[in-house]
Design a protein around this nucleic acid. Structure first.
Lengths: 343, 343
DNA sequence: TATAGTGGGACGTAATTTAACCCACAACTA
DNA sequence: TAGTTGTGGGTTAAATTACGTCCCACTATA
């Protein structure tokens, strides 16, 4: 039988693309406010004229306000965004896509955000928003949260607010000092903690330790404290990387690169490298959370998007713990779905 | 807080009139099928081009089918109409309007049909559809239904079908032979009965009887049988007329007209004339159902529409029994609402 | 067989949308 | 403080679309 929204769509077929584009515009304004027509047009890959037409209507409807510094989303606009999110996602097939991945990988929950991570700058923000919401919804007093580095994980920062829950501790899931300070686990935990008025623990250690140094470190109080945190991690927030990309970014030695290639490493998550079958083939020799510890944690939030990471996702989700909540973008989700045998 | 349809309306304001007009077109096609563009355009007071544009879309959506003999509504089209009726009525404010009248007059149920009875030929059909549905919903075995004459009541005919309920008897609420045979109570009961495979009783009597003749008639077996039916009427289906109009149509004598005017008669229903305060000021001297008998019946369906009847409605509903279900058009309902003190 | 009504096609014109600017102003940055 | 970048609003010619209005071949029905 026909549902009301379906009937509506039949009677007004031209409504669907209009709703989608207008929703996208309003949503982007909300995320990037204050923002001007031209910047918005660039960001959404639309013409200035189209943006102008739509924003004029949105302004007339009181969902948008134009100030000297740019356009901002009104309270009513935000309410409309919230109310229509489910509908838009449903119509775009994102809900169905999410359910498909959820069932196939046996994950607790999958959220697919509309758009292409590589094409649209706002996608990263959307990922962060959804991930942050997932985290905030289930946060509880005194919990320990292990956090890895990366752009995807960093995107949560702006959406974390002080909550009713207290005594949250963010701990860097791995030690290590890379080039990009901004995206490092150590930096992120401090940012997250600041946003939520919470505590944090960092672990500044070189990434590539010799076997000797590694063993020596294990007895350091600073390290044992972290190990203790890892052992009691209630929640893990992590990204998923493609193996080559990660190895390069960590400027691994040519030797390591050779080993990775030899062993068929495809994906990387919290310092572990997995091959296409999801088997652990390598591990960064540094202090960090153990895979067993991740598996024991109550909640896992995995954030990763972009077509270039599809192979890595397919690899990692062969062994991903069932309590994982996975947040990705439309393009990646579709690419994954296409590769599945069920389609 | 904002509801989803409200939010949708805010984001896509231009969809509202489109939905309304397209729904109206599809609905009219359903009611008048098979029908052509031009006839449809005339009927809805739209241009042929607009009709064409919309029907093209509806055809593309599979809600409409074009045959040589005209356009017809598909099963899917009918499903869409049913699904969206509540939404369209809600958005048009018809539901609110109906509730307003319901509360003010203290009636069981009020249905307001969109449009103007005087401008749009399909309104009459819509009235009939709703009224018939109301009747069919509550019909039961062995019930007696008293039916008056008039266009409004006649409109039910095409929507009555054989139901699960048996032994229904339609009885003409009044005797009388006028000019327009088609709209007479006697004709209608036979039509209704034919449509529903039911029984019927007619009463062919002159409308204007002398006191002597009237008294004589009361003892006739044919009349006493009818009186008995009236006494056990389970349902009454009637129209509401404006007093002048009715008097003229019944070509009353100049004397009667004078009396009516003198007594301030405004409305007419089942042979009774009411003044602006709802008091009975006159009665046609003929055999027919008594007001007390109407009041005792379980269900009363009143059908009346058009701006010219507003005064009559306001008059009659001052005394209308509470079990009345009233079906009218948008223009009349709005006119009534404007005259109410609560606005 | 006559007639009224049907859907599809066509076409010039009117209305609307579009693209591409410019402008004055505000808010940052150096 | 001077300069630069980005802002919303305005304008105008061109392109596109929508529109009104016919015609046509066909088909039921009377």
């Amino acid at each position: 039988m026909l549902s009301v929204p379906e009937a509506q769509q039949r009677l007004l077929p031209e409504m669907y693309p209009l709703l989608q584009s207008r929703y996208r515009i309003l949503q982007t304004v909300q995320l990037m406010q204050p923002i001007g027509r031209r910047t918005l047009a660039d960001s959404l890959k639309m013409t200035e004229r189209e943006i102008r037409k739509e924003t004029d209507i949105l302004r007339e409807q009181g969902l948008l306000d134009s100030q000297k510094s740019g356009m901002v989303c009104t309270d009513e606009g935000e309410a409309v965004i919230d109310k229509l999110r489910a509908l838009v996602y449903e119509w775009s097939g994102l809900t169905q896509l999410a359910k498909l991945l959820e069932n196939h990988f046996g994950l607790q929950h999958v959220i697919v955000v509309p758009g292409d991570y590589n094409e649209d700058d706002t996608i990263l923000t959307l990922l962060g928003k959804e991930a942050a919401q997932q985290f905030m919804e289930t946060s509880f007093d005194g919990q320990t949260v292990a956090v890895t580095g990366g752009k995807s994980v960093a995107s949560l920062a702006q959406f974390l607010h002080p909550a009713d829950t207290h005594n949250i501790t963010f701990v860097a899931a791995r030690g290590g000092i890379g080039h990009e300070m901004r995206m490092q686990a150590n930096t992120l935990v401090s940012t997250f903690a600041m946003q939520m008025n919470a505590q944090y623990r960092t672990l500044f250690l070189p990434e590539h330790l010799s076997e000797q140094a590694y063993q020596a470190m294990l007895t350091e109080p600073m390290v044992t404290e972290m190990m203790n945190y890892y052992d009691h991690a209630d929640c893990v927030i992590h990204g998923i990387g493609s193996a080559e990309e990660m190895a390069v970014r960590r400027n691994s030695s040519p030797e390591d690169l050779r080993i990775l290639e030899e062993k068929g490493a495809v994906s990387e998550a919290f310092g572990y490298y997995f091959n296409a079958e999801g088997e652990i083939v390598h591990r960064i020799r540094t202090i960090g959370i153990q895979f067993e510890q991740v598996q024991r944690s109550k909640k896992i939030i995995a954030v990763a998007a972009g077509k270039q990471k599809v192979k890595a996702m397919l690899s990692y989700f062969k062994v991903a713990p069932k309590q994982t909540v996975f947040i990705t973008d439309e393009v990646a989700a579709k690419a994954i779905a296409e590769g599945l045998p069920s389609l």
